[in-house]
Design a protein around this nucleic acid. Structure first.
Length: 468
RNA sequence: GUGGCCAUAGUGAAAUGGUUAUCACGCAAGUUUGUGGUACUUGCAGUACGGGUUCAAUUCCCGUUGGCCACCCCA
C-alpha cells in the first residue's frame, strides 16, 4: 500500500509538465448545457428539516467552535465524541420513555440486524453511557467532558428548529457540589457574552423525586380547588403530568398559575441548601439570573438545578431558549452505574449563530491572502506555481487562479479579494529570472529578483524582523 | 403531531389567463493581442413537482415536496 503510493508520487513528480496548455478555453466553451435541464424531473433536495452549512456560514461555525473549545479547555474539560447512532434503549432509559423527545421526536429504526437503534436526540445519556462503559469512575472525579456535534429530532421545522441541529455540550460527572452547577452556568454565560449575545439565565430547582412527589400533591390539590376556571389541557395535565400546568399560556389560567404553590417551598433541606448555594455562587460571580418557578424541563433525568439561557430579544418568537441544562444526580444509576451526581448543559449552535447574525456581531479577523500570484501563459505559470509554494513555505498566505489565462481576470480577482500585493510573472520575467511586484493600492510596481521575491515581500509586509 | 401563510434565474425583487416572463446583484467572455477597482457590450441562469379547469396557465383549483409562523415541545 505504502509502496504503491510512493511510486505514484514519484511518477507525478518525475513526469514532465504537460505539453498541452490546459485552460486556454473558457469553461463555458466546454458544453452548453451543464445545468440539469431535464424537464419533468423533480429536483433532488434536502430532506425536511435538514440544512447545508454553506461556505459563507463556515466562519461563524469556526468562530463558535473555537470559542466553545477554548472555554472548555480553559476550565479543564476534555473532549468526547460519541457515535451518532446508539442502541435506542440508551435514550429511552436515560432521557425517559414518556418524554416528548423520545416518544414523539426520536429517530428510531431497526437496522439490518433488526437491532433497535436511534439517532441521538441529545447527548447526556450517551455521554453517561460512555462514562460507564469506559470505567471513567476510576478516574479522578469529577470527570469533565465537552462535545460538539449533530443531533436529530423529528419535529416540524421552523427557524432555529431543525431535524438535524448541533449542540455544544458540557457534562461534569461525579460531583454533587453546587459549585459545579455554578461553574457550568458560568461557562455558558461567558460563552454567550464573549460571542456578543446578551442573555439572561432562567433558573429553578425541581428538587429530588421525593420533593416533587410532595409538591405535585399540593399542586394538584390547589388546581382541583380551581377546577371550574382552568382550561381543558390543564385538566388533562393534572392527571398525566401535573407540573406541566405551569407551562400553560391560557389567559384564564394565568391568575391561578400566579398563586400556585411553588416548588422551592417543597424542597428538602438538602435540595434547598444546594439551590441556595448555587445562587450564592452566581451572585458572587456577578452572573445575572432570574428565578423562574415555572421552569420545568422536558427530560426525566433532571434533579435539583435546572436552567435555561434565553435571549433578551422579544422578536425571536418561541425559539428563545438558546440552551438548557441542569443537574442529573440519578441518571448514572439509571443507566447501570453506582449512584453518581452529575450536571451538564447544551447550547444550541444554530440558535447561537442566528443570534450572532441578528445582532451583527463582528467576527474575529480572518486570515486573508497577502499576495496574489498572477501569471501569463504556461511557461510563466510553472514559475508562478513554484513561487506560490515558496511563499507558502515562508508563511506568506498567497492567492492565485492558475487556471485563468488573462492578466486582467487575475488582477480583477486579486482586487475583488482585497489583496494588497500581486506578483506578476510573464515570458519576459521568466527569461530575466525576475518577477513584478505590484502594490495593489497605489498601483506602483517594481521588478525584483525571482529568488528574492518572498523575502522582499515579507519586508514590505513587515513580516521579516531579521532585516532592518 | 395539529393549525395557518407561502413557493418566479445562485440571491433579491417585478409581471401576466394569450406571441421570445422583466429588472438588479452575481457569474463568464470581451471593449488594442501583458495590468484591477469606474463605464460599456455580449452571454449564463427561472415560474418546485404532479394532476385538474380552460381553446390557452407561471397566473385559477387539488395533491406532493419544501420553507416560514403559531401550538406542542425544546436547542
Amino acid at each position: 500500500m505504502a509502496i504503491k503510493k510512493k511510486v505514484v508520487v514519484k511518477k507525478v513528480v518525475a513526469r514532465p509538465a504537460p505539453k498541452k496548455e490546459f485552460s486556454k478555453k473558457p469553461i463555458v466553451a466546454a458544453k452548453k448545457d451543464t445545468a440539469p435541464a431535464v424537464a419533468g424531473k423533480k429536483q433532488i433536495q434536502l430532506l425536511r428539516g435538514m440544512k447545508d452549512i454553506l461556505p459563507r456560514d463556515q466562519y461563524y461555525w469556526k468562530t463558535v467552535f473555537e470559542a466553545a473549545q477554548r472555554m472548555s479547555e480553559d476550565f479543564g474539560f476534555n473532549r468526547i465524541e460519541t457515535p451518532l447512532l446508539e442502541e435506542a434503549s440508551v435514550f429511552m432509559r436515560g432521557v425517559g420513555k414518556q418524554t416528548d423527545v423520545v416518544e414523539k421526536e426520536m429517530y428510531v429504526f431497526e437496522d439490518r440486524d433488526m437491532e433497535k437503534v436511534a439517532l441521538r436526540p441529545e447527548n447526556t445519556a450517551a455521554v453517561v453511557r460512555a462514562y460507564l462503559q469506559h470505567g471513567m469512575w476510576n478516574q479522578p472525579q469529577p470527570v469533565k467532558l465537552w462535545y460538539f456535534g449533530p443531533f436529530f429530532r423529528h419535529e416540524r421545522p421552523q427557524d432555529g428548529r431543525q431535524r438535524q441541529f448541533h449542540q455544544f455540550g458540557l457534562e461534569v460527572i461525579g460531583d454533587a457540589s453546587p459549585v459545579i452547577d455554578a461553574m457550568v452556568i458560568q461557562m455558558t454565560y461567558l460563552l454567550y457574552t464573549e460571542l456578543g449575545i446578551p442573555v439572561s439565565v432562567q433558573i429553578n430547582s425541581i428538587g429530588m423525586p421525593e420533593d416533587r412527589t410532595r409538591y405535585k400533591m399540593e399542586l394538584v390539590q390547589y388546581y382541583r380547588s380551581h377546577r371550574a376556571t382552568i382550561c381543558e389541557t390543564c385538566k388533562a395535565r393534572l392527571m398525566k403530568n401535573p407540573m406541566r400546568v405551569l407551562d400553560c399560556k391560557e389567559d384564564s389560567c394565568q391568575p391561578i398559575k400566579a398563586n400556585a404553590p411553588q416548588i422551592v417551598d417543597y424542597l428538602s433541606n438538602e435540595s434547598r441548601d444546594h439551590f441556595m448555594k448555587v445562587l450564592e455562587y452566581l451572585d458572587e460571580l456577578g452572573i445575572p439570573y432570574f428565578l423562574n418557578h415555572t421552569l420545568v424541563r422536558g427530560l426525566d433525568y433532571y434533579t435539583k438545578t435546572v436552567f435555561e439561557v434565553v435571549t433578551s430579544d422579544e422578536e425571536q418568537g418561541s425559539q428563545t431558549a438558546l440552551c438548557g441544562g441542569g443537574r442529573y444526580d440519578l441518571l448514572v444509576e439509571e443507566l447501570g452505574g453506582k449512584p453518581t451526581s452529575a450536571c451538564g448543559v447544551a447550547p444550541g449552535i444554530e440558535r447561537l449563530i442566528s443570534q450572532m447574525k441578528k445582532r451583527q456581531v463582528p467576527l474575529p479577523a480572518r486570515r486573508t491572502p497577502q499576495v496574489y500570484v498572477a501569471q501569463l501563459g504556461d511557461l510563466s505559470r510553472r514559475k508562478a506555481m513554484v513561487l506560490f509554494a515558496r511563499l507558502r513555505a515562508e508563511g506568506v498566505m498567497a492567492d492565485q487562479d492558475f487556471s485563468k489565462g488573462s492578466l486582467k481576470a487575475q488582477l480583477e480577482s486579486a482586487n475583488a479579494n482585497k489583496i494588497p500585493y500581486a506578483f506578476v510573472i510573464g515570458q519576459k520575467e521568466v527569461q530575466e529570472g525576475t518577477v513584478i511586484m505590484r502594490d495593489m493600492d497605489s498601483g506602483v510596481q517594481e521588478t525584483v529578483d525571482f529568488n528574492k521575491a518572498p523575502q522582499i515581500l515579507k519586508r514590505k509586509l513587515g513580516l521579516d524582523k531579521s532585516v532592518e
